[in-house]
């Protein structure tokens, strides 16, 4: 059984699963940037006391699962979401969906994902893919970050659906439960909601570690890392920052370029030139994030290492925080 499902590669797994599943459900105009922006995906958080893989816990996007949820909600599309205690029941439900012609999004762990390069396989459990068919013992897999479709045996799929540890998927699957036409008016409204919520998330969540304030906070912490952690561990921390920013399907520049693309696409629905101007600001912010990454690499590769170099690194982030603050302020001033 093979469902006629179109695999479109995306930068990020959840955006890709969301846009590809929605397209299948009849939302023809959906794209990865639109799903990302409507789901208010852009974010920044640095959680000082929490360690991930022995490095700082930093994220450039919103919590896993929210983009799918918010985007479907905003477009008024009903969703089925299920987790399972037993892998037999999980497999049976999945098979029933496929037989009924329904492609299904699955949350999986990456560590045992056989088609990924070994160097990428950590115990990260919030990866997403679409199952769109089954041929004998092989499930047909559309993993949005891969260029082409791939397969997993039923044992392999079961293993990643029931990965253990933080954010254990417990076999979670999800899909839009009805095919539906979405009007241009609905997309317009969804874009507006998405931007407003993103303004709130980046500017107005209280506390020093979230949003634009969080970028500033991280900037000032980085300036102290050399003395506090020593050069070696500071390098490890900076490398982790760069990986969160560039490695995990961000589309480059910690999702800032993707958000710029979203604002340009939003302009087709809301012909307000502020959107285009702010898109340019995000291009600039993304470019600065990339420059900061080059500076960080200088440090963790041992070419740089003075306090001055750490100050330069921190100053990049301060400059970024200013640009993003101004950008979101302008978005919040739009009269819709």
């Amino acid at each position: 059984m093979k469902i006629n499902f179109e695999h479109i590669q995306a930068a990020h797994c959840e955006n890709g699963v969301t846009s590809n599943l929605l397209k299948y459900a009849g939302v023809n105009n959906i794209t990865e940037p639109l799903a990302f922006g409507i789901g208010s995906g852009l974010f920044f958080i640095y959680i000082p006391l929490l360690k991930v893989n022995n490095g700082p816990a930093i994220s450039f996007r919103t919590m896993p699962g929210l983009i799918f949820k918010r985007t479907c909600n905003a477009l008024d599309i009903p969703v089925v979401r299920k987790t399972f205690r037993s892998s037999e029941k999980a497999a049976r439900f999945l098979n029933e969906c496929i037989e009924a012609g329904q492609p299904v999004g699955c949350q999986v762990g990456v560590y045992y994902l056989t088609y990924f390069p070994k160097e990428y396989r950590f115990h990260f459990n919030a990866h997403n893919l679409v199952v769109f068919g089954k041929e004998e013992d092989n499930y047909l897999i559309s993993d949005p970050v891969m260029e082409t479709v791939t397969t997993l045996t039923s044992a392999e799929l079961d293993r990643v659906r029931f990965a253990k540890g933080v954010l254990a998927p417990n076999g979670q699957l999800y899909y839009p439960s009805a095919k539906k036409e979405v009007s241009e008016e609905q997309i317009k409204k969804a874009i507006k909601i998405g931007i407003k919520r993103n303004v709130r998330d980046m500017l107005y969540i209280p506390g020093p570690v979230v949003g634009v304030a969080g970028i500033k906070y991280t900037a000032n912490r980085i300036k102290k890392w050399r003395d506090k952690l020593g050069l070696k561990q500071a390098g490890t921390y900076l490398a982790q920052l760069v990986r969160m920013q560039e490695e995990i399907g961000t589309g480059g520049g910690g999702f800032r370029f993707m958000y710029g693309a979203f604002l340009q696409q939003a302009h087709a629905y809301h012909p307000n030139d502020t959107l285009l101007n702010v898109a340019e600001d995000f291009t600039k912010a993304g470019d600065l994030w990339r420059s900061a990454a080059v500076q960080a690499a200088g440090i963790y590769k041992g070419r740089l290492g003075s306090q001055e170099d750490f100050n330069t690194m921190g100053d990049y982030l301060l400059e970024i925080a200013e640009i993003e603050k101004k950008a979101f302020k302008e978005l919040s001033n739009i009269k819709w």
Binding site: E119, G235, T236, A239, Q240, V242, R243, E246, E247, A293, V294, A296, A297, Y300, K301
Partner: peptide
């Protein structure tokens, strides 16, 4: 730049 981060 990111290959070096992953190597590290």
């Amino acid at each position: 730049v990111k290959a070096a981060a992953l190597d590290l």
